[in-house]
Amino acid sequence: MKIVLAYSGGLDTSLALAWLRRTYDAEVVAFCANLGQVEDLGEAEARAKANGATSVYVEDLRHEFLTDYAFRALRADAVFETRYHMAASLSRPLIAKRLVEIAKAENAHAVAHGATGKGNDQVRFFAGIAALAPELRVIAPVMEWDLTTRARQIAFAEENAVSIPAFKSSPYSRDTNIWGTSVECGPLDDIALAPPEEVYTITRSPESAPDRPLLVRIGFENGVPCLVDGERLDPVTLVRHLNQVAGEHGVGRIDIMENRLVGIKVRGVYEAPAAAVLYEAHRELENLVLERDLFQYKALLSKKYAELVYDAKWFSALRGSLDAFFDDVRRRVTGEVTVKLYKGSATVVARQSENSLYHLDFASYESEAAFDHSAGTGFSYIWSMPGRVSGLRGAIG
């Protein structure tokens, strides 16, 4: 039997690699996806080989992740429950896709992952793999084994000579990629307490951020961010740069109660500096270039798109159809937006576009050239007719 394992190099997946070999008498192929996480994938590759992986795939998927997943959500203005930029949620379909592709190339019988039963990721991996290769078996070692305590895990590692990362004193569980970082566990489980400053790793506290604001000009072409302060940057460089400058100004911290798709409420603490800036800029540019009805209706579909991403329905017909809508909308979304970064806030202060629907002659109270004020009385009379009729019937109040 051959199994392809989504391998991070951490404790759980290192144990899982050895456990799969032993439990299923299997050849295990390890797949490490570089999504911009902080972990050293060179160490992960070496550890996978030391633990008996028959082969190891280490792939830089940052560009694909941003262009085909994160930026798709950006142009849809998809933010889960109005706050969460879904860095983890967006990465899982890509990992699932590559697991399937590698499994087919390796003639593997199954794929495996290190997600737990309480989290969303188990569903995202399972749903993605089932949609792309329903014939493949999906194995979740953490939900099958009896290594439920740290003592049992250490004992298993010692008995089977499993190379595992050095234990760290941090009580937190972190998941990172180039689009954002999530933090759970430890003191964060007490929702009555503010997150300790040590939780945050890529953003400064707003209190210690620079006392002078920074203006950043973001350029979009057809809804895709491609320029910062007039300089054209590739997606990876652009997001890394914004993570650095916005994080320095304390932008992108989020602390929310989150409704997981498995039915429980959890506290989610996130850092997403680049995403926070890009969403503010993109939404404001859309407001400049889209007609009122289209801009407002799009918000309804944005909410649904975020729910599909979060709820493991990336590989769904509805998500594909919504993409067609957003692809049409983004043809108008070209221009530049200036965002002021200051003490934890990202505020749009200027915007311009060749597709702008802002018309000074109509909008300005200083201009009388284009707007016929006398038409206002008739318009107001007709617009207020439902309320007038209800008032005459005594149906109001």
Rank of each mutant, 00 (worst) to 15 (best):
T148S: 06
A48V: 03
R21C: 03
T377K: 05
I95M: 07
A53Y: 12
R253F: 09
R331G: 00
D12G: 04
D211G: 13
D361H: 12
T116R: 01
R150L: 13
D190W: 10
D234Q: 01
F326N: 03
P213E: 15
D323F: 07
V142E: 15
A44I: 11
A155P: 02
E184H: 09
V28H: 09
N120D: 15
D190I: 03
S380A: 14
R388S: 10
R292G: 02
V349E: 14
E59Y: 09
S374M: 06
L290M: 14
E336T: 12
E184V: 02
V216S: 13
R204K: 12
S208H: 10
Q122K: 09
H241T: 11
D190T: 04
P171W: 13
D175A: 15
P165M: 13
G320E: 15
Q244Y: 07
Y172S: 08
T54H: 03
P386M: 01
A53C: 09
H359E: 15
D189P: 00
R393D: 13
L136E: 01
A105M: 11
H373P: 01
A157N: 04
G268E: 15
T116S: 06
A161K: 15
R47Y: 10
D255K: 04
V228A: 08
G247H: 12
V348Q: 02
A346Q: 05
P196I: 04
G10Q: 04
E280K: 05
S384K: 13
Y7N: 07
S14R: 02
E291G: 15
I256Y: 07
P165F: 14
E106Y: 09
L214I: 01
V309W: 14
N120C: 09
L301K: 04
T82F: 12
G263R: 08
T13P: 05
A155M: 03
S205F: 06
R72N: 02
K118P: 04
L66P: 05
G114C: 03
P165W: 13
P93V: 00
S89L: 05
F65Q: 00
E106G: 07
T149A: 11
G114I: 03
E158Q: 14
I256N: 06
E307P: 01
R351D: 10
E64H: 05
I382E: 10
F315Y: 15
